[in-house]
Computed example of a mutant assay.
Amino acid sequence: MYDSTIDFTLDTICPCQEEATLRRVRATDASSKVTFTIKYLPYQLYPGASQTGEDKYEWYKRSCYGDSDEKMKMFQTLMTAYGASAGINYKFNGTVANTLPAHRLIQHYQATSPNGAEIADKLVLSLYHQYFEEEKHPSSAETLLAAAQAAGVEEGEARKFIADVGKDQEGMHELKVLIGEEAGNVLDQVPVVRVEGRKRDVTITGANEVEDYVKALMQIVRESE
């Protein structure tokens, strides 16, 4: 059995189809040959965003698409298609805001829990679901607590960690170091998925179809023996 780590560099407001890919691959005999474990690495597309946030639709239209309704509609069509391939029902309203507190939550439990990889997976899935499908704030205390509960973190423990917003927040220094490291590895497009292989690694950058990820993982499986 070959153990492969998938380094997944993301901002928590970026689309992800890795979970759908893993479900597909694990449903084949690949699961008897390779164990895939995701390691989430933090990156901020817009580190200057406020924690209060602003209207998501208007922000994307203004910041990414030249305040063009036509270009925004094209983006919605594209992302809706990507989402459909991964079982995600994208919505485009809600709030866009600074994602640093969400990254802090993910990195803390990924690094400190005995089953950190499993908890991190559940945290990310809940954060995505809340942001993309329920139009929730990406890193409010309410959103983070809901994600922690979905991941099986004890409520009192989660509340205490999330409420720590002082100068010496637990894990914040380490988080900022990781973000700095990934900023040097990533140009301007996330997610970046690096799949560790026995013979060679595979890197996929940006939003892709599920089939692209499946192809990459199956290549790792074929070359694992």
Rank of each mutant, 00 (worst) to 15 (best):
E70K: 13
H129P: 01
V96C: 09
M74Y: 12
T52Y: 11
A141M: 08
A151Q: 13
K39M: 04
A81K: 08
E135V: 06
A141N: 10
G48P: 05
E155R: 11
M72P: 03
A117D: 14
E155V: 07
A102V: 09
S140Y: 13
T95S: 07
A30C: 08
A120R: 05
L105P: 12
P138C: 03
S68P: 01
V34P: 11
P101T: 00
T52C: 01
E58A: 14
K136S: 13
S63G: 00
S126K: 04
I38Q: 13
V124F: 06
E154Y: 14
H129I: 05
Y60T: 06
F92P: 11
A30V: 11
R104N: 02
E134D: 10
Y46N: 15
M79T: 03
E118K: 14
P47R: 00
Y82E: 09
E133L: 04
A120D: 04
N115M: 09
E118P: 00
T99Y: 07
K33P: 10
L45W: 08
S140A: 06
C64R: 14
G156W: 10
Y90G: 05
A86V: 05
K71D: 02
Y65N: 00
E70I: 05
S68K: 11
E54C: 14
K56A: 05
A97L: 02
E133N: 07
A111Y: 00
E135H: 04
T99C: 10
A102D: 06
G66N: 14
V124M: 07
N89T: 06
N115L: 04
D55L: 04
E134P: 07
P101E: 07
Y65L: 00
A86Y: 02
